[in-house]
Design a protein around this nucleic acid. Structure first.
Lengths: 182, 182
DNA sequence: TCGGAAACGGAGCAGCCGTTCCGCTGTGGG
DNA sequence: CCCACAGCGGAACGGCTGCTCCGTTTCCGA
């Protein structure tokens, strides 16, 4: 990538991929990403030798963003607000960016690229749930696996058509929160 | 289908399709269904001109079975037991037969073939929820759309790998029930 | 028994997909 | 300014899918 045009094409590809993934899901054809970026498929493949690498590249930035929010939640002194806010943010992301959670939950082919982040995320969730339980705001018997199952359920609603998914996801998030609260 | 061998092949195809759909999901290739039935693809296509018709044929029997259970729930004098039992049965079906709910919920390509059943199902759920609310066992503000969203969430967990889905679905069902109960 | 229609099997078609090849283009160091 | 070569576009490949065509086999009534 010694030439300036190559770098600019790379940037346009990443931007096009981010946009395409967010709006059409992770399974948009490579041709479509190239088309949106206004380049040929060969150019796309020169910068990202496989589909997986393109997805991983787009996802790292989102995952980092996500880590920031998690750390902010950990700083919240109100244990219930921290946990419920995390669940709601997660649901929101599902609505506006149908891609991200695939990297953090679910046995996705991209999971391998984010092992470290996934573990960090899981540990943060452990802490949030433990603190909520210590604060007595959780229903008896609820554990972190329940919360994780709830998040997974929200995440798997991503495949619904966009018009209905926002409404359904919102309701499910409310149900999950009501279901774990004391 | 004037010949006996044709009828027997048809039966074998339906059996193979039911088995294949239940274990591998609705998207198994037609070739694979034909292979399991021990016939050629042309035979499969002669009996079921499109993939959709095959799926619909396999699903009707399940859907009817489902209607029976719904009617049984409507007869239950205990409103909470009727509703929660329905949710749990729904979750169970998701675990053991990853196909059925696609026909009853969700904007699937097969929805059209089951309009009547879907409407009946929806009305029965309306009644179950209305009775549960009248009995005072529902949390304030919970309506039938919340329950439907919960069912949809359970249904969309179907794509998880079989080992984990049973556990996750069970937990989500518990969460949903806890989330709607007073 | 026998012959024609019914039913069959599997190669083949069209249309997706991710990925690669290769001849041309246009950038930028000398 | 100029031309080597990094970088490009898009046709093409291989592999998947749902679905069709057609030569061959098999049933079954007369």
């Amino acid at each position: 990538m010694r030439r300036a045009d190559a770098r600019s094409n790379r940037d346009r590809l990443v931007a096009a991929a981010r946009e395409a993934f967010a709006s059409a899901g992770l399974e948009v054809p490579m041709r479509e990403v190239a088309r949106r970026a206004g380049v040929g498929v060969a150019t796309l493949y020169r910068h990202f030798p496989t589909r997986t690498e393109l997805v991983a590249t787009v996802l790292v930035e989102r995952v980092e963003e996500c880590g920031v929010r998690m750390r902010r939640a950990l700083d919240d002194p109100d244990a219930w607000r921290a946990l419920s806010g995390t669940v709601r943010e997660f649901a929101d992301r599902q609505v506006h960016d149908r891609v991200l959670n695939e990297a953090l939950l679910g046995p996705s082919e991209f999971a391998a690229a984010f092992q470290v982040e996934r573990r960090e995320h899981a540990r943060a969730l452990d802490v949030l749930v433990a603190r909520a339980r210590a604060a007595g705001v959780l229903r008896d018997g609820v554990d972190v696996d329940d919360v994780r199952a709830g998040l997974l359920a929200i995440a798997s609603l991503r495949r619904l058509p966009a018009e209905t998914s926002a409404r359904v996801i919102g309701r499910v998030a409310g149900l999950v929160l009501a279901g774990i609260r004391a």
